[in-house]
Design a protein around this nucleic acid. Structure first.
Length: 503
RNA sequence: GAGCCCGUAGCUCAGCUAGGUAGAGCAGCGGCCUUUUAAGCCGUUGGUCGCAGGUUCGAUUCCUGCCGGGCUCACCA
């Protein structure tokens, strides 16, 4: 770093602004590489960050990288002249330059820009990790990888510069969201925004983050879901609304959980969960087709076929299939007994729903690799879902499960205000029994339902998990640009080089 | 929250389980090299071995605590 500051001074002494204002480029690196035949011997202007350098006396090869890739440039002293070559000598890996030159192929066949002139666009003061790579039989072998996960997450900017596959993941994430949005818009659904700061949190079972509004002198909660607000909008007469929502849940973190995460929630009037299942498999498979070009994907070594239709499997049938036990008629004591036989640990406060959920997640869920809709959940697990039309102990709910993990949640929405009130009251009783995740009664939401909400189907898709699936990433942190981390103690200021004037 | 593991130069790591104040490759710096590509060759700088204690004549190395991280488990999407 010291040396780089010295170089900076020398450049300034030469009358060069190391941080100029702009550079007009004619092509990106990828455009030059793709259009080589048309561009051969033509002059192009390309900009990027110096990623490697091979110096050879009075000439040098470098690779510069922009958002779309890397291209080699070749710089000769007798072409650029003494002064620019002097400037070149003061460049480092990590600096950003703009070059102008002719496109040609080297003896070894690599498309390269013969630099006529170049301009320093940004002097980099901090050395970048140098990742070396070699292409053997079309495969990229990486040497000295920048692989420390903590550093990669904390300094994602470095990760993005140095690891092209990381860049790809986030480009795909962006395209997944863009494609979903197009899909939803093309169906005429309205994208809306609802409060993140909520006086009463609801729509899911989870513990919230709490904050405080000074002027109002009251607590606010960061939303754990946006369900109840979106349903208010259905009451208001919008017949299809959706929101890509950052939600916040005050829970532990692991491979599948980050305290803030993104959900797409969609509500469509006059539809039920059967319709929503079809919609969901269409949505996901067409996103895959659009972003990956196929509905057959590989996730962590497993082949997964997202082509519709997906299997529909009632929850209790699934449990029966994987445990051999029919629990559809079991009451709570019987469920406890079943759990014990299956060696599933259950706690005293748990109700029937929770025990079933536990058995399901342990014995069934991990086995559901191919996309499956688990349908028809017990009533007590789903306080916002409508009672099953054939079985009053169940609700019309489904979760799409892929690669052993749920990536969403949906139901025929409960629109009977009296039933909804009872369900809330049931939740409040659970809360009093110590279940911190039980849902909170929302009087205004009930008031809205009392005005009348049409039959409605609702869906939530976990965007982070979907992205993991479609980009084959094992951890949620690999699909979040800035995953939650404890703060660093301090970022080293690195000021000690600057004392007095330069030499 | 619990268990296991990790924290040594800018990056990736070795040395530590036979305790005597550190090593490699890459990067950097100097030199040679005008089609190289993990460029090469010669030379060279660089580390309070995460932090704080303890044991010891002496600790990167052993012990304890703390901080940060990873993986697994528990809870949840």
């Amino acid at each position: 770093m010291l040396q780089r500051r010295e170089k900076l001074k020398k450049l300034r002494a030469m009358g060069i602004n190391p941080y100029p204002y702009k550079f007009d480029r004619t092509h990106t690196t990828a455009e030059v590489l793709q259009n080589y035949t048309a561009l051969e011997n033509q002059t192009v202007r390309v900009a990027g960050r110096i990623m490697s350098r091979r110096h050879m006396g009075k000439a040098a090869f470098m690779h510069i990288q922009d958002m779309h890739g890397k291209i080699q440039i070749y710089l000769k002293k007798d072409v650029v002249g003494d002064r620019l070559f002097e400037v070149y000598r003061l460049l480092d890996i990590g600096d950003i330059i703009g070059v102008e030159g002719q496109v040609f192929k080297t003896r070894t066949g690599e498309i390269t820009i013969q630099v006529q002139s170049f301009e320093l666009l940004c002097k980099s003061l901090r050395p970048l990790p140098i990742v070396k790579e070699k292409i053997v039989d079309g495969k990229r072998i990486v040497y000295d990888p920048f692989s420390d996960k903590e550093l990669r997450y904390r300094q994602r900017y470095v990760d993005l510069i140095v690891n092209p596959e990381v860049r790809q993941v986030f480009i795909k994430r962006s395209r997944i969201i863009a494609t979903m949005r197009q899909f939803l818009d093309s169906r005429g659904y309205l994208e809306v925004e609802t409060p993140i700061l909520q006086p009463i949190y609801g729509g899911a079972s989870a513990r919230p983050f709490v904050t405080y509004h000074n002027a109002l002198g009251m607590k606010f909660y960061l939303r754990i879901a946006n369900e109840l607000y979106l349903k208010r909008l259905i009451v208001g007469g919008f017949e299809g609304v959706y929101e890509f929502a950052k939600d916040f849940r005050n829970e532990g973190m692991d491979r599948f959980h980050n305290p803030e995460f993104t959900q797409m929630e969609l509500y469509v009037a006059y539809r039920d969960y059967h319709w929503m299942m079809q919609f969901t498999e269409e949505l996901i498979s067409s996103v895959a087709r659009e972003v990956l070009g196929t509905t057959r994907i590989t996730f962590q070594g497993q082949e997964i076929d997202l082509t519709p239709p997906w299997r529909r499997l009632p929850l209790f049938e699934a449990i029966k299939e994987y445990t051999g036990m029919d629990l559809s008629e079991a009451d709570e004591p019987q469920l406890r007994e079943a759990a014990e036989r299956l060696h599933v640990t259950v706690e005293d406060g748990w109700g029937a729903g929770k025990i079933i959920d536990e058995i399901f997640s342990e014995f069934v869920e991990p086995n559901l690799i191919q996309p499956t809709f688990i349908i028809d959940y017990p009533l007590e697990m789903s306080p916002l879902a409508k009672r099953h039309r054939e079985n009053p102990r169940l609700v019309e709910r489904f979760e799409p499960i892929i690669a052993g993990k749920e990536i969403g949640n949906a139901f025929s929405e409960l629109n009977d205000p009296l039933d909804q009130r009872e369900r809330f009251e049931q939740q409040m009783r659970l809360r009093e029994l110590g279940d911190e995740e039980a849902q909170v009664l929302d009087e205004d939401f009930l008031r809205a339902l009392e005005y009348g909400m049409p039959p409605t189907a609702g869906l939530g898709i976990g965007i982070d998990r979907l992205t993991m699936l479609l980009t084959d990433q094992p951890s949620i942190r690999d699909v979040l640009l800035f995953p939650a981390m404890r703060p660093e103690k301090e970022v080293a200021p690195e000021n000690e080089t600057e004392n007095g004037d330069g030499e």
